[in-house]
Nucleic acid binder design. Structure first.
Lengths: 350, 350
DNA sequence: CTGTTAGCGCTTTCAC
DNA sequence: GTGAAAGCGCTAACAG
């Protein structure tokens, strides 16, 4: 509407300013070979001088190739992963309006060899792959093979830093663990006058990088800021409700002086059940991860005190956008794609 | 790369399937008049049947009109507003690649008549306007005039719900206040055994809708969940450091039993100074808003215990995206544009 | 009411 | 090395 902005420049204008043709400007713009260094300079100057930005829509249209991305995610009933998938589902219109195809591939991410071979099978099939990865030599090799094959690879939720993946979309899990520790410590507060206050940790497996990092961060804070609280050995519930329940119920029975509980992964149903059955759910400060139908209910009931959360919708969209930017050779808006560590309590439930 | 996805359909394909021309499909697609109902049906069926999505890039290119947006924001030294502006600045490349122009207009948002006339001056000049607005009849009228004039209007940070603005980009301030209350209450914890625990509130002005809503939410939680804490009358510091400092210093001197402090708006420097000068900064739980260079430092020092934050980068981008979607008549991805209430403590500082 | 047509700004052959 | 020209899929003006 109204006062039209000064008509933006086009490749054409740059071409004439630099005294070359459209095609040459295009070559310079994309660092393609076959242009004399001197010409390159002239063109670059013209681009610079006008701070020219090519029109993305025109580029996308002309390029006109559809792209295929794959999301490799854990099979099984993990609510958080299901949320990511559901948010991806909500994006279908957005995706197809951009001629992007996203496929879901379920696999056993707890088993490194299964995951590795699932990944190997994708070499040469997709433009980009997002994977919730176990940090394991075989997996690392598979990721590197994908990259070798020309695909863009993004790790999601759990990173494999030593691989050649292009990007990690997820939170800093050490900081997340520290945050959980600070919350447990601060919320327990002077309750620990008793001075024998103990804190329990339930994790899926310490072999999972994200879980291990969270525990590391948690212990860091406990050791430095809440010395009056003693942390009990980690229970490994394999993210299963039944097993988590058994282990925690036993621990609670054994230690009547537990004042805090950190649930590192899934298996929340089991953890909550053990806590409630012990009748001590109002006394024990309970901090866990992610906002799901279940943790939402527990927060509202006051059984859970806080959830450390990574916005699954944001993660899904960020992964797609990053893959797209990588595939197109565009810059990544790191501030936008960074996943924050959210603290969610009853009153700021999303 | 590799295995090309099945070539997507185009308007042309739909046209031939429905036995009409390109133009007719385009008309139906955009609900333009001048098509026989029966034809509309046939075309819609073809679209539905193929779940056809027009290629956004092609549409954008063909439409080819540049758009102008204005951001009307407070003049003055408010750090949070400066952050929003700086994030807008970081988007320039993104914006110009889409042929969008964004202009900043500074005005005194605390003075309703000044704000109203600043807004009136924009009628007919922009396609979209984002405004940090005071909720006042004159402002409301100005917003309605803008809408009347065909512009899309988005309120930012502070809403004017009774106006005809198309969208609000910002947090639920009542929930933010509740969250602040819950944090103060929980972090004070059994310290209030003393039972005479008092809580101080410093706000900019209760006339600002966002401040008033936050206070409302804060008091709600205090009254229902932390009855043992008594809330002192609100101090109005006009978001100024000097004035906030004076008022709070006096209050602290008068009440030696203050255990909690909620800073609703800006003026943080003054609030922190009063608190530190009292020598009680470690005993008093201090919760404020927004992560700035200042609050970041205070959190790290342990003077401030938590900041309730709305991600300024996200707000800036969301405002632009919403204006763009409104201008183009595209749907708004509400999940993506929703601004969350972030709780930021030392360990999850972004 | 409906169809034809000329672009939008870039990418990509294919010639020179 | 460089340029000319044919589209990419949609929109909008103009004919019919």
């Amino acid at each position: 509407m109204k006062q039209d902005a000064p008509a933006a420049l086009t490749l054409r204008d740059i071409a004439s300013q630099a005294g070359v043709s459209l095609a040459t400007v295009d070559r310079v713009l994309h660092n393609r070979p076959g242009v004399r260094p001197d010409t390159v300079r002239r063109v670059k100057e013209a681009i610079e001088r006008n701070s020219f930005q090519p029109h993305v829509a025109a580029a996308e249209l002309a390029r006109g190739r559809a792209r295929r991305f794959a999301f490799v995610m854990p099979s099984g009933p993990n609510l958080f992963m299901q949320q990511i998938q559901s948010y991806l589902g909500e994006m279908t219109a957005w995706l197809s309006a951009r001629r992007l195809a996203v496929e879901m591939i379920a696999t056993d991410v707890f088993d490194a060899s299964v995951l590795a071979s699932s990944l190997e099978a994708l070499v040469g099939t997709y433009d980009g792959i997002a994977v919730v990865a176990l940090d394991h030599p075989g997996v690392r090799a598979a990721i590197n093979d994908l990259v070798e094959g020309g695909a863009k690879v993004v790790t999601l939720v759990s990173d494999v830093p030593s691989s050649r993946r292009h990007h990690y979309v997820g939170i800093d899990n050490i900081a997340a663990g520290r945050t959980a520790g600070a919350l447990v410590g601060r919320l327990v507060g002077p309750r620990s006058d008793l001075s024998s206050g103990k804190v329990a940790i339930v994790a899926g497996s310490q072999g999972l990088r994200d879980h291990a990092e969270r525990i590391f961060g948690f212990n860091q804070v406990m050791a430095s800021e809440f010395v009056e609280l003693s942390v009990l050995p980690v229970l490994e519930g394999r993210d299963e409700d039944e097993r988590s329940w058994q282990l925690l119920a036993r621990l609670l029975a054994k230690h009547p002086d537990i004042v805090g509980l950190y649930n590192v992964g899934a298996g929340t149903q089991g953890v909550a059940r053990a806590l409630m059955e012990s009748g001590r759910d109002k006394q024990i400060v309970f901090v866990g991860h992610d906002v799901t139908v279940l943790t939402r209910k527990l927060l509202l009931q006051g059984v859970m005190d806080a959830a450390i959360s990574q916005n699954p919708g944001h993660e899904a969209r960020a992964a797609v956008r990053v893959l797209l930017a990588l595939a197109r050779g565009e810059p990544i808006l790191s501030e936008q794609e960074k996943i924050r560590i959210d603290i969610v309590m009853r009153d700021n439930l999303p």
